[in-house]
């Protein structure tokens, strides 16, 4: 038992090392780029990092980050709630699944930038535009994941549960939900990453506050150091979310897959 815990801890640390090594490699390449092209094209990593510290130290900098995070999560959670709910319903019906196919294709095919234009017309320059854009660009992924999960589940296991007269609620949670999750989770993780990118893009074009707005300001001032600082913030937060939220959830729901 102790041996088992120790080995999981070690493997966690080891994967942490891997991530860290990757991050440092990126900074090294960045430094090479700076030395080759000069600070107008790529600022020195250290300069960008010190700018980052300045930005976060300003009350408006932290506020920008929180506003963006709030918008991304609002859109993403709304998309998750609706996407999973309707995906589950559609998955259980042959007709609905067939009918939904073209909708998913169309929704995935519309570029987020087009949604931003529409959202600007509908919601104006407030929170509504980025939240709606995140919602509308992630919901097809989540919906399709839930729908596929329901469609692809093993009917044999349903039959087994039925043969023991296991009540429907237990049947859902113990037999069907784990199979649905194994399809839903990758889609859900992709959608979370996408929601970060889309929210920044929507803010850049529509908002006066948030990370995207910060980027827009940096562009107006031709300030590459601030631009890179904001990019580091976005990517860094994505890494943190993945490590602190996605990976633990993944370990929890897919733990049985990694049994020796």
């Amino acid at each position: 038992m102790i041996h088992h815990m120790l080995s999981t801890l070690l493997s966690k640390l080891w994967s942490g090392w891997g991530t860290l090594a990757g991050v440092f490699l990126i900074f090294a390449l960045w430094q090479v780029g700076f030395e080759a092209f000069g600070s107008l094209v790529l600022p020195a990593p250290l300069e960008a990092l010190s700018r980052l510290v300045d930005l976060v130290a300003l009350p408006s900098g932290l506020e920008y980050i929180l506003i963006t995070a709030k918008r991304a999560f609002a859109g993403f959670l709304l998309a998750s709630a609706f996407g999973i709910f309707f995906g589950l319903i559609a998955g259980w019906s042959n007709t609905l699944s067939l009918l939904c196919k073209p909708f998913i294709t169309v929704a995935l095919g519309v570029p987020p930038i087009a949604w931003i234009v529409l959202a600007l017309l509908w919601f104006g320059g407030d929170d509504g535009t980025p939240i709606f854009t995140v919602f509308i660009s992630t919901i097809p992924l989540i919906f399709a994941g839930a729908l596929q999960g329901v469609r692809m589940r093993e009917k044999e296991l349903d039959e087994m549960a039925q043969s023991f007269h296991v009540p429907p609620v237990q049947r859902f949670w113990q037999v069907q939900a784990p199979q649905i999750v194994s399809y839903l989770f990758p889609a859900w993780a992709t959608a979370l990453g996408l929601s970060w990118k889309v929210v920044v893009m929507a803010e850049l074009l529509s908002s006066t506050r948030g990370i995207g707005a910060g980027l827009a300001e940096a562009r107006v001032n031709i300030d590459t150091a601030s631009t890179m600082a904001w990019i580091v913030v976005v990517v860094g937060l994505l890494l943190v979310i993945e490590g602190m939220l996605l990976n633990p959830v993944k370990d929890y729901v897919e733990g049985w897959k990694h049994a020796e």
Partner: peptide, 15 residues
């Protein structure tokens, strides 16, 4: 009180 044993074991892999 019936039970069925299938050709495949049909154990739940996550339990």
């Amino acid at each position: 009180r019936t039970a069925i044993l299938f050709q495949e074991h049909r154990l739940l892999p996550w339990k």
